[in-house]
Design a protein around this nucleic acid. Structure first.
Lengths: 150, 150
DNA sequence: TCTTGACTTGGACTGAGTCCAATATAGGAT
DNA sequence: ATCCTATATTGGACTCAGTCCAAGTCAAGA
């Protein structure tokens, strides 16, 4: 049983076939799937799993802090299983590829007290946009450099 | 005629009634409207304006760099007319209020060369999340502290 | 093995955003 | 001032991600 499943178990989750399968999909490579991509991969392991269960489970994993919700294009939400290491994202504006990146400084320190307006600031997300080597080489229009790793 | 309209004119834009009205809506306070909010306000000035025109025009303004597209909740896109001053955003996770903030350091400098993976990095967005004073006071659940300024 | 509350399901629904063919018009040409 | 046409607008249909719900299923504690 994966670490993730063990932790979920410890939190009182009922370990259903659906949740196991979703955990397995997320446990693989550190990619950033959309809910529908998770569903597509889950269906290969458990053909009868529903979209609703995937949405429910992903939402719960986000609430528990086991998975991070990421939105790099203003359209689709993606799910990042790399929730236990502080990191940010680097996105290719050509093909949409997403890479996890680690920063040298805590971005919170760049927001001076005078710019906080009394907010209790709790979290920061930083997203870098640029062109990946393949898209630079191909000088391609959006989405034309083949399927990226997101 | 506003500066914005003058610049658009200089770029060869046809100045239609619809575009004037949208520019007027955006010219007001520095808020972050959704496309439908822009439409609602535009309708007050020009009742027959269509949603399609609002979407078209906002998209073109974003392409021209006159307006910035912002997505702070992973759901709706918002439009920020404050495109000519570098800034980032501070978002209340209680009520969704958005404030423009200026940082002390260029966030690009926090991404070391070794974390760029050959990307030609061109842009960064930083979004801070926390609770605004009103929501802290009200200790409210999301959306329960009245209508915020977004 | 039984029981029950938590979980899953499919399908209807919502809401943001896109697309398109028909119509209207800004603004340069005459 | 009028004409002409490329450009812009329109409404309505459509897409797609995500939500909701009532009915059925099942994990796991008793």
């Amino acid at each position: 049983m994966s670490d993730l499943l063990r932790r979920l178990r410890a939190r009182g989750w009922r370990l259903t076939a659906q949740r196991r399968v979703i955990a397995e999909v997320l446990d693989g490579e550190h990619v950033h799937y959309t809910a529908d991509e998770v569903h597509a991969r889950a269906v290969e392991l458990l053909p009868e799993i529903s979209r609703a269960s995937v949405y429910n489970t992903l939402g719960e994993l986000v609430t528990l802090g086991e998975v991070i919700e990421v939105n790099t294009d203003g359209r689709v939400r993606r799910y990042d299983p790399n929730a236990h290491e502080a990191h940010q994202h680097l996105v290719c504006s050509g093909c949409g590829a997403i890479r996890d990146v680690r920063l040298t400084d805590d971005p919170l320190s760049a927001l001076p007290e005078g710019e906080r307006f009394g907010f209790h600031v709790a979290q920061v997300t930083v997203t870098y946009y640029g062109r990946c080597p393949r898209c630079v080489a191909a000088n391609s229009a959006p989405g034309q450099a083949g399927s990226p790793v997101v």
